[in-house]
């Protein structure tokens, strides 16, 4: 157990500074000392604060197993899941700072309004599979599935959205930029071997891929270790380059009378691939 200030009946004390309030202008950090046990995670400490010091402290949580993505917060200034952050992993001898995710409006204390993400999710066209094969089935191969399955690990904790400076520090970009979580979703669909909906123009024009300057913070904070930048965002950027910025691809389209695919336009059928 991490040594904390003082002791309490054999249990060590832990000091936490928790952000409290209902709006960012008037809220602030409040310090609590509570007894802690070995093996505790930060979410346990929040429960103890609720039990012993502040029953009105608002904390969102569900599974307490790192799979629901509900308890995202900023612990000592870094986005983390409270349920997956052991107190013993944090520096000893100083208070633990716990703040709500900075990118989203505060509802109360550590609970934020993440509806921005749900609105963005609605703007991504659903999976549109290719027609059934003559035997009435659809086939895809393991090597193709492996790539997109990584993206399915996302638990929608929205920590990547929270840490992305494009919207974290620039509120005005929220309209034009959807954030890393939705580039993961777009990559999952765009690279899916059976999906037929083209999302490249959508990714560029409606979801603002060009705003991303690949500083990789999304990858750093992902609790599922999804390689968001290397496997989703950069491959999408390369596809956008081919479609919109590559002079040779542009010349080829001009030469053969092709035009860039339009928003949501169905990908040309490639029977040899099916």
């Amino acid at each position: 157990m991490t040594a904390r200030s003082g002791s309490n009946g054999g249990a060590r004390d832990v000091t936490v500074r928790v952000w409290r309030g209902e709006d960012r202008a008037s809220g602030g950090f409040v310090q609590y000392d509570v007894p802690a046990d070995p093996g505790m995670v930060v979410l346990d400490v929040m429960f103890r604060v609720q039990a012993l010091r502040a029953p009105d402290l608002a904390v969102r949580w569900n599974c307490k197993a790192g799979k629901c993505g509900s308890c995202s917060a900023e612990i000592n200034g870094r986005p983390k899941l409270m349920c997956m952050t052991r107190v013993s992993s944090l520096p000893e001898g100083e208070p633990i700072t716990i703040a709500p995710m900075a990118t989203f409006p505060v509802i109360k204390d550590l609970v934020t309004d993440v509806s921005y993400n749900y609105e963005k999710a609605k703007t991504i066209p659903a999976f549109r599979p290719a027609p059934l094969e003559p035997d009435g089935t659809r086939r895809m191969y393991q090597e193709e599935v492996d790539r997109v399955q990584e993206f399915r690990k996302c638990i929608e904790c929205f920590m990547c959205q929270n840490v992305c400076h494009v919207i974290r520090d620039h509120e005005e970009n929220k309209e034009a930029f959807s954030g890393p979580r939705f580039f993961v979703r777009l990559a999952e669909l765009e690279m899916h071997p059976l999906d037929t909906h083209d999302r490249i123009e959508l990714t560029r024009a409606k979801h603002g891929l060009g705003f991303c300057n690949i500083t990789k913070c999304c990858t750093e904070v992902c609790p599922e270790s999804i390689h968001i930048t290397d496997n989703a965002i950069i491959p999408l950027k390369e596809r956008v380059v081919t479609e919109f910025y590559d002079p040779l691809a542009w010349a080829k389209r001009r030469l053969f009378g092709q035009r860039p695919r339009q928003l949501g336009e169905k990908e040309p059928a490639a029977p040899s691939d099916r």
């Binding site: 494009v166 705003f211 991303c212 300057n213 500083t215 913070c217």
Partner: peptide, 30 residues
């Protein structure tokens, strides 16, 4: 410093990423 590190505020008030010149030229990488 956009950003200097994760969860550290951007140095600039406005940010357009790689959507405009000169940073849109990064697309020539290949």
């Amino acid at each position: 410093w956009s950003p200097a590190a994760c969860s550290v505020p951007d140095a600039r008030a406005k940010y357009g990423g790689e959507t405009k010149f000169p940073f849109v030229m990064q697309n020539i990488h290949r």
